[in-house]
Design a protein around this nucleic acid. Sequence first.
DNA 1: TAGATTGTTAATCGATTAACAATC
DNA 2: TAGATTGTTAATCGATTAACAATC
Lengths: 214, 214
Amino acid sequence: MQRNSIKVSMAVVRRLPKYHRYLGELIENDVNRISSKELGKIMGLTASQIRQDLNCFGGFGQQGYGYNVNDLYKEIGSILGLNREYKTVIVGAGNLGQAISNYEGFRREGFKLLAMFDVNPRLVGNTIRDIKIHDIMELEDFVRDNGVNIGIICVPKSSSQEIADILVRANIRALWNFAPNDVNVPDNIIIENVSINESLYTLTYLMNEDNLDI
Amino acid sequence: MQRNSIKVSMAVVRRLPKYHRYLGELIENDVNRISSKELGKIMGLTASQIRQDLNCFGGFGQQGYGYNVNDLYKEIGSILGLNREYKTVIVGAGNLGQAISNYEGFRREGFKLLAMFDVNPRLVGNTIRDIKIHDIMELEDFVRDNGVNIGIICVPKSSSQEIADILVRANIRALWNFAPNDVNVPDNIIIENVSINESLYTLTYLMNEDNLDI
DNA sequence: TAGATTGTTAATCGATTAACAATC
DNA sequence: TAGATTGTTAATCGATTAACAATC
């Protein structure tokens, strides 16, 4: 089993979830075959780009036919790592933490939410949809003892770095950060920031673009 | 007042909020002067890129000195459109809608949240932090009558397009969409999708990257 | 077989980095 | 003045698009 470690560019990687989603929709609509040209039209990409992207991972298509939607969906799901399980915890049991726990896409079988954590004594001990809210003091031991893979940070800016440090100490593999700041982690930790503010400010930029006197 | 409409690339635009945030942090730390070299080190960018980015909008620096942190912060804030007001509504008053209404960065003076909307009769009529939850039937008239600028979509995938259509009909200028699917809008509407799932699946991809046999 | 569409190489385009004269 | 650092042009790098032989 030879490993060919050609590094796939992040531009390609960030398109993969989109392919996955659109293929899922095609399956829902009972489409079982699609060409790069048609898929490009639906997704707003060029056929060429789609073929280039997919061929980073293998030749999934067939000349003269196109791609089998079901097979391609499964392949991409597998490439994205959606065919395995992840143990997760959410730190911060406020609205945001609860929203994530209930978000379509996170509530698929693969993501096991083991616990939530909070500092607020009024929340600690409660149970939301079968998930217990623990005191944040228990976070480090819990993550280590249960081999948690993904730590989801839903706390304010002021404590996000502190939480990240605890999770890293407890041997977490990846952080999914919703706090509006970047947290610093060692190189071996995977980190993904969901920069909600950056998205909003991009929106306001675009709303005013025409007014700029440059 | 001449308008020079050199189109700024999205790559640059998406870095602007990050500049804004880091400059804000420098101000908090009483730094009032910074060179592109230092800023680059903090933000993980090259000095060259920072100078190129900023010069899309004007010469904000001074040779031999660098940039005045306060001035640059204000300039970028103004470029991002953060010096004006936006009337907003949130559609979907569940956890996600409430989380957004309370998110640091959205709760700055510029963003006026006029109302929330929901279909759930148990939520309609309630008030959360002084914001009334209206029946979704009132959405179109409310948006039109109040000249709402930004519609924030926090509903499930199944109804996001329908909500977007209503908002567009009511003459909205921009949509900030948290539903896990793309909504279709006319070209003159600004749309910004916060693809939470895409972020998660990118994370799982990166967690498994080394295991891929390509 | 003829038509369609892939996989892949080459060409183009755009974004990032390097270099340096201008100047504070 | 000398040193520092910008603004800006040129060089490089990477990503996207175009083209086409291979082949189902």
